[in-house]
């Protein structure tokens, strides 16, 4: 689940209008690995730039798809970015 984001007010409004708000759950369809990543919110797939994905913080989700997220190493720790920067 989205837990917050370190984005400007305008960017946050765009994301909220697209359905990616603080209360939504989403599935990571493709992690970026330094490039853009794809998430699915409800029925909509969104492509996010790496910079944007790093700024959206997530919380673990107890949906059946969590295993999928875990496999990607995402959304495991509280308030972790969708797509953490590569060390």
């Amino acid at each position: 689940m989205v837990a917050g984001a370190t984005l400007s007010k305008e960017d946050l409004e765009v994301l909220r209008a697209m359905g990616l708000d603080e209360t939504c759950s989403f599935t990571v369809c493709r992690s970026g690995g330094g490039g853009p990543c794809i998430i699915q919110v409800d029925a909509t797939r969104l492509g996010l730039s790496p910079d944007l994905a790093r700024r959206i913080l997530t919380r673990p989700c107890d949906c059946p798809d969590t295993a999928c997220c875990a496999a990607e190493g995402l959304a495991i720790d509280a308030k972790k970015p969708i797509d953490p920067p590569i060390a």
């Binding site: 960017d11 697209m18 853009p36 492509g47 996010l48 730039s49 910079d51 944007l52």
Partner: peptide, 9 residues
């Protein structure tokens, strides 16, 4: 700043 690259697929 460009708008954030968030693209509906």
């Amino acid at each position: 700043k460009s708008r954030p690259m968030v693209l509906e697929l």
